[in-house]
């Protein structure tokens, strides 16, 4: 009797996470959908005109900025992360990996506001002085995000590479391939799904990051012209205006949240599908 009760209670608890997720989706959609219908989905998604106090709610410049910032972060971050992952999984002696992997994971623990702050005091002046423009820019945001997503991608990729059966490696080495040829042609191929999952999760993290981006991206409301122009992402738009928004304006911020939510879910679901395939392989 008591045992049954405990089991039922635990089952309820098990649903807490998914319950929270659903509640969250319901609330954000409930707050944000009406305004999207009011201004029209097309208008909302494709207009660049955002003047919430005057009734203009177009988020396309933010969508574009978010995507550019994320792509920039991937271009800078992925090669670095993969280099780390390959070195630590294949070249470094076990002793070194055991120390360096958690060290890199420590990078993930540094608060995002600290990254943003370092971006402002160190990176932004460099960009302004050597590359021109205001310094607060798409490029600055991409570089900071690249550093922030390094640990995620590195750590999952290391696990993926290490999961490749040793026999593959032996087989290739036995055929006279060098270690690097083996890595490039055999190991990376076999670890492909895992590495792609890592990259997608890194992308999800980059597109969702807020505080660091607000501090270094410049937050200007227009389509980015070059890597040096200041941009405002979906996330920063919410955080910047939430403090004083009311009525339709606030609803429009929730609608911005919906766009972000959809992006994140797409990333998560695809990462999940690829991981499943990886596990099956």
């Amino acid at each position: 009797m008591k045992e049954k009760l405990i089991e039922k209670t635990l089952m309820l608890l098990a649903f807490s996470a998914i319950g929270a997720l659903l509640l969250m989706a319901v609330f954000i959609f409930k707050e944000g959908m009406p305004i999207i219908f009011k201004v029209g989905i097309k208008n909302f998604l494709f207009s660049t005109h955002w003047a919430p106090t005057k009734g203009h709610f177009g988020v396309s410049s933010m969508i574009v900025s978010s995507l550019f910032v994320t792509i920039g972060a991937m271009i800078i971050g992925v090669p670095l992360a993969l280099a780390c992952a390959i070195t630590l999984a294949e070249f470094a002696p076990q002793r070194v990996t055991v120390i360096l992997k958690p060290t890199i994971e420590l990078l993930a623990g540094i608060p995002s506001v600290v990254y943003g702050f370092l971006g402002v005091v160190l990176l932004v002046p460099l960009i302004r002085d050597y590359l021109g423009g205001p310094g607060l820019s798409l490029l600055a945001a991409s570089i900071i995000l690249a550093i922030m997503i390094l640990p995620t991608i590195t750590s999952i990729s290391i696990d993926a590479i290490k999961a490749v059966p040793y026999s593959y490696k032996e087989g290739s080495l036995a055929l006279g391939a060098t270690h690097w040829q083996t890595i490039r042609m055999v190991i990376l191929k076999a670890a492909r799904s895992g590495i792609i999952t890592a990259i997608i999760l890194g992308m999800a993290r980059a597109i969702g990051e807020t505080m660091a981006v607000i501090m270094v991206a410049g937050n200007a409301l227009r389509l980015p012209q070059s890597p040096l122009s200041p941009v405002r992402t979906l996330t920063s738009n919410i955080a910047l205006e939430m403090g004083y928004a009311a009525g339709d304006h606030r609803a429009a911020l929730f609608a911005t949240g919906i766009v972000l939510f959809v992006f994140i879910m797409v990333f998560n679901v695809s990462a999940n599908i690829i991981t499943k395939r990886w596990r099956r392989e």
Binding site: F27, I28, G208, E209, M242, L260, I264
Partner: peptide
């Protein structure tokens, strides 16, 4: 999925 939700959306919620 919950683990992947960015903090800004958590904040909104």
């Amino acid at each position: 999925c919950l683990a992947g939700i960015p903090s800004i959306i958590m904040g909104l919620f």
